[in-house]
Design a protein around this nucleic acid. Structure first.
Lengths: 221, 221
DNA sequence: CAGCCACTGTCAGCTTGCTGTCAGCCACGC
DNA sequence: GCGTGGCTGACAGCAAGCTGACAGTGGCTG
């Protein structure tokens, strides 16, 4: 597994490289936008971790050029704390996930793993998980063939759970994914969304592990 | 710590073995590709130092076969000076680090240590320890293949023991890990958690050394 | 611009089951 | 045999999570 870490702060770059190495990646670091573009375009990485604030060339531009050039490597974008707009722009430019700084290394590794796994196995637009199927193009869900209308927020939550269906997602991670950590919602907001989702989807789809978080139930259909 | 040095020049092989011995490794040497493949596949080393220029079977082929066979031992590749291509090929074949010849022995030892340290910390998603296996994604444990439901606290305790399976953990350290040292629980709280864990996991998983602390039993199943 | 409607955060009260405490027991080590 | 450190079963307190109601907000329509 080869990873590229694009990050201008050498200390953070080293930390990221070390963490990824621990997860089995051979990591190359790069602190300059132009060089990053070149590397991502010519070499074959399994994952790219991209900081948006860069000298040489802006991270967003680099990302857009990669995508324009047909590069499909999963990209995990690091955004500054509270830069909500950066996150949206990042997704629109083709990022696969984002992580607000500061972050814990375990978090980075977990997301990196998820991205690689996702890229490897399931490229398909429609994701199946037990009785649930999710059409990521139409942004719709259906249970046992019956379509279920979802709101934007509900869909984003469900999609995140499905894409990371092989692990338990902590409420904090979900909150951070749905809203920025800058924008502090009460934890209860999440519970409310989950409750509404459960009511729509029926039982046996979203499970809870007390003290850990939420997950998609696959086994007991 | 066991190391395997694959090197056809007997003088260099002896030097490498001596240097590694100084770093605490028990080193076995081997000058032939076929034999190296067999050894790496059947024995359990903590580190392999591999010279690419070999009689019998090419070093790269040996490495690829190891990786294809599921061997995850960290491999440090020795490449000829300036052979840039060899380095790339080596990494792609699954090498964890490379060292261009000629090198200073201190350099070799430093890299060897780093590799081993990295490998030790590398968290595959599932950790095995004797009859116990721990899925760090799903936050679940299973004993001899039978899944065991754990609460958050039980899981955290067990995970800490498994990650530090090579030593005995003092109760104070565990208390500090589970709760903050600011938050003072009675020592008995820990014993209660251990008791509950033992009941769920069965005997022979968590051991006690009176006066020292707890540890994961690996040998006696 | 006003009115409507769907969406979503907040709140209060409730349920559930985790977890610390306690008292008594066991067993190891001297 | 005795003392101490560790183990265990019972139990109550408490916090995590669930739910139904409600209100604020923003977008859409007439």
């Amino acid at each position: 597994m080869r990873a590229l870490a694009v990050e201008d702060d050498p200390r953070i770059a080293a930390d990221v490289a070390a963490a990824l190495a621990g997860a089995g990646f051979t990591t190359q670091t790069c602190g300059d936008g132009e060089e990053a573009w070149f590397l991502g375009d010519t070499e074959d990485f399994d994952l790219i971790v991209l900081d948006l604030g860069l000298p040489g060339m802006d991270g967003l531009s680099v990302l857009k050029r990669w995508r324009a050039g047909g590069c499909e490597t999963p990209v995990l974008v690091l955004t500054a704390r509270g830069a909500w707009q950066e996150r949206v722009e990042g997704i629109e430019a083709g990022a696969d996930d984002y992580l607000p700084k500061p972050f814990r290394m375990e978090e980075l590794v977990a997301r990196a793993r998820a991205l690689v796994r996702r890229a490897a196995g399931r490229g398909g637009a429609v994701q199946e998980a037990g009785a649930l199927s999710l059409d990521t193009n139409r942004m719709t869900a259906s249970v046992r063939g019956v379509p279920v209308p979802l709101t934007a927020l509900e869909y984003r939550l469900l999609a995140y759970l499905v894409l990371n269906r092989d692990r338990v997602i902590a409420p904090t991670e979900l909150l951070e994914h749905l809203y920025g950590d800058d924008d502090a919602r009460e934890a209860n907001a999440l519970e409310a969304v989950v409750a509404r989702l459960r009511r729509k989807l029926g039982a046996g789809i979203i499970g809870t592990r007390r003290g850990f978080g939420y997950f998609i139930e696959e086994a007991g259909a």
